[in-house]
Design a protein around this nucleic acid. Sequence first.
DNA 1: ACCCAGGGTCATA
DNA 2: TATGACCATGGG
Length: 222
Amino acid sequence: MEKETDLLLEVHERLLRQYDIDRWHWRAETPPLDVCLGAILVQHTAWSNVEKAIANLRAANSLSLETLSALSEEELALLVRPAGTPLTKARRIQVFVNLVLGYGGFAKLFALPDDELRQVLLATPGIGPETADVILLYAARKPAIVNDAYTIRLLRRLGTGPDGDRYDTWRAWLDARLPDDLAFRWANHAAIVVHCKERCRVRPLCMECPLTDICTLGSQAV
DNA sequence: ACCCAGGGTCATA
DNA sequence: TATGACCATGGG
């Protein structure tokens, strides 16, 4: 376990040395609503398409809880259409937005104890474990673990990780091994995403990959 | 013409 | 518990 922590910390350091995570899409000043919309819209979807959807919302002056709640399902679906599964995502956004409004805004919702907040999010239709953890970390700014396909793929290539790929198994495994620190966890997940988007999917770039020498799968496909 | 993307939900065995 | 179907658009 300590050895695994050492590996995770080494990866963390190397990635932060290599990438400027400030160029990642969520920054310290990103409003909670933007983060939450992105978290829902990116489900099984390429981020480039999410940007188009959010640009549509911005152009329609609809980046507020009140506006999003007031839009008809069809109108909202039209705006988020580039992100795919438009009707599904329009519904999920409205359910979530109404949840926040019901609490009287993000500040009050996020004032709940961490565990309770996570339960509330998970009980919301359309918000599964990964979306909930993204909201916890990047919108509510709690030191949550975010697991995702990138993390699993990367750490498997490094020959580590728990048995099985179930979300909660990975989450517990990472939680026990990463510092319980907001800044660390914020940067760690961001760096993994930036890294995987930039390199992991393109094999020729493996030569310049900052993790090549500890990658146990060599040149095998991602 | 495929295949997949930072998921989530529901039905089936 | 564990797969599979479905949602549906845009880019490689």
